[in-house]
Design a protein around this nucleic acid. Sequence first.
DNA 1: CCTACCGATCGGTAGG
DNA 2: CCTACCGATCGGTAGG
Lengths: 219, 219
Amino acid sequence: MTRTAGSKGEKTLSALREAGLKRLYRQGFSGMTLRELAGDVGIQAGSLYNYFRNKQDFLYQVMVTVMEDILTEMEEKLRGTRTPREALMAYVDCHVSFHSSRNREVLISTMELRSLTPENYQKIVALRDQYEGQFRKILEWGNKEKSWKVPDAQVATKLILGMMTSVGTWYKPGGRYKISDLILIYQDMIDNLLHNEVSAHALDPALMESRLTRQILKQ
Amino acid sequence: MTRTAGSKGEKTLSALREAGLKRLYRQGFSGMTLRELAGDVGIQAGSLYNYFRNKQDFLYQVMVTVMEDILTEMEEKLRGTRTPREALMAYVDCHVSFHSSRNREVLISTMELRSLTPENYQKIVALRDQYEGQFRKILEWGNKEKSWKVPDAQVATKLILGMMTSVGTWYKPGGRYKISDLILIYQDMIDNLLHNEVSAHALDPALMESRLTRQILKQ
DNA sequence: CCTACCGATCGGTAGG
DNA sequence: CCTACCGATCGGTAGG
């Protein structure tokens, strides 16, 4: 069997990434030892340095991948939305979906910010700011278009992102609700939150029927 | 000057607790070294063992204190509430207040669950379940009294507690909003969430005026 | 509360 | 990718 050049090394690399995620999640950055990580993929500790420059670099790679992945997904979902409300619903969809399906990685990315060197910290925080900024821009766009009235977009962003992000702390795959259910719940909650007293004509009719909280909380 | 018996040791003990909180928050349990902790309070590493049996015991003491404090505060706030809605508002008040003012300790208590020995883990999780159970009981009480209709109290508890808890991740003292503002926002959000389509007669008139989200998000 | 110390283990490197 | 190793440092203990 001919082997693709570098295929073995790439298998090890992706195994390292998967094993690293588990260990970072269960033990944290300083609690995870490189000897354990090497053991997970069947190599010796010294051999790890063929895959990353040092332990810090490994953490950084994990975190930058998470941020780039969610930024890419978000960009795709937002492309083609034509109203603030469509954009809002797309953002909620993407955010809840990512934070549920990849909750382990997301939690690591928040908890281990403190373990980054100052240089790496700055880079990751810049990506996080960019991600958060996209939400704030949607809120401000809706203000301008009179889709809703959010006087303090800065704090509203923190508040709404926070309530969505928390889904990652309690969602368990195979539990009572599918991710698609959770998306509908959060979309409806946030939709109601923003449109509570706003005249209906500003709203997108396609999204008007409230599938919201009633579906899960009240049905 | 006569010194109260043990006063020096108690000063050191409370200094250790404060320094420990900072280090646990910034470095995590396995990242914090006992030599650093000893240095913070001006003693040698070996002397720490006059204050706790070992590092694990120190973490456990920190976490059990947080849980006992919030359970005590909650018990006091809930005592004397006469309707499900009053109880709900009291719970939100206490939860948001505690998770804002003592956010560092609360975040430690969540992140470092993984660092506890199995025996200590069980004890802390039992306290957390008790705390969470109090909220679920309020939801179920409101169901029975027809204050609201929450078909899945289990998941609603996770969802609503999650959105409240997230305030601890972004609240900064001295920021744009006081804790008392945040309490009003969350009370209103959750109040609206539960009463969205419920006839008004079930609601407590004293709490009827919606101070909610409109105050901050829309005024 | 200190000095002095223990065994264990860590991240990382040299040289294949 | 391995063997063999380095200096540094860790949590914890003995004996005052």
